[in-house]
């Protein structure tokens, strides 16, 4: 297992966001985390990424406990996240945004080469390299957020709602890109409200409800599960 989360509790003040969450992610897996709004999906990946400090529990990444470590230390280990809502730097150019992705020590040296790889994978970014990122379309911004994350040469990427607010054709493109990354050897954690698309793509999945893991299984198993079908797929 590349990531082992055990008995994680997280509070925002008095409100409990995560309640005894445990999960495992193997190397080169695609794991989906699904659930309704407020189920704790974003809280979970923020906690893994070092943006929130858990009250209890452990997070072991390649055997190292990273629970409560600040995000810049976690990032340095190869754990990256593409945050919800495409947090790009609007006044920087596309190229500058990408360069900001390579601030980690692990990524500085190979920066030029990584950028070439990112451009090869996401050619639209090369076309728009010297344009202010704020002028890109929603889909392009999402691609930029993904490309910028890759600049850090991550081993595991956690995507938070990458399809949010995008047109259906663009969503397909985003999912295809995520699959490409997986094929290139990156471990993927996918948080999505688009339950059917993410379950189809995922090797395994966890269902979160009110901060607890209520169900886990392979993507195919969960797609057949009566409860999941009723609650999330509207069938």
């Amino acid at each position: 297992m590349i990531l082992e989360v055990r008995n994680l509790d997280l509070y925002y003040g008095d409100a409990q966001a995560l309640d005894d969450v445990s999960l495992d992610i193997a190397e080169r897996e695609i794991v989906a985390i699904v659930g309704a709004n407020g189920a704790g999906k974003t809280s979970l990946i923020r906690t893994i990424g070092g943006m929130c400090r858990p009250a209890r529990g452990s997070i072991r990444y390649k055997g190292v406990d990273i629970a409560g470590q600040p995000s810049h230390k976690v990032c340095e280990l190869g754990v990256a996240q593409v945050a919800e809502g495409r947090q790009i730097f609007p006044n920087m150019t596309v190229r500058e945004n990408l360069e900001m992705g390579a601030v980690l020590k692990r990524a500085r040296a190979g920066k030029r080469g990584t950028m070439e790889k990112v451009f090869a994978m996401l050619p639209r970014l090369r076309e728009r390299a010297d344009q202010a990122a704020g002028t890109l379309s929603g889909g392009e911004q999402q691609m930029l957020a993904i490309g910028r994350c890759l600049m850090g040469q991550p081993e595991m990427v956690m995507f938070d709602e990458p399809s949010l607010g995008l047109a259906p054709t663009i969503v397909q493109e985003v999912f295809r890109t995520i699959r490409d990354l997986h094929d290139a050897g990156i471990t993927v954690v996918l948080v999505e409200q688009n339950v059917s698309a993410s379950l189809k793509m995922a090797d395994r999945a966890y269902v979160l409800e009110n901060g607890r893991v209520v169900l886990t299984g392979t993507g195919a198993e969960l797609l057949r599960d009566e409860g999941v079908r009723q609650a999330y797929l509207g069938l």
Partner: peptide, 21 residues
């Protein structure tokens, strides 16, 4: 450049591994 990143989007800067504090 780190300052500019923090100014434009602190959360994003943090997720990229900038020691924002």
């Amino acid at each position: 450049y780190y300052w500019q990143a923090i100014r434009e989007d602190q959360e994003a800067a943090q997720t990229l591994g900038i020691d924002v504090f």
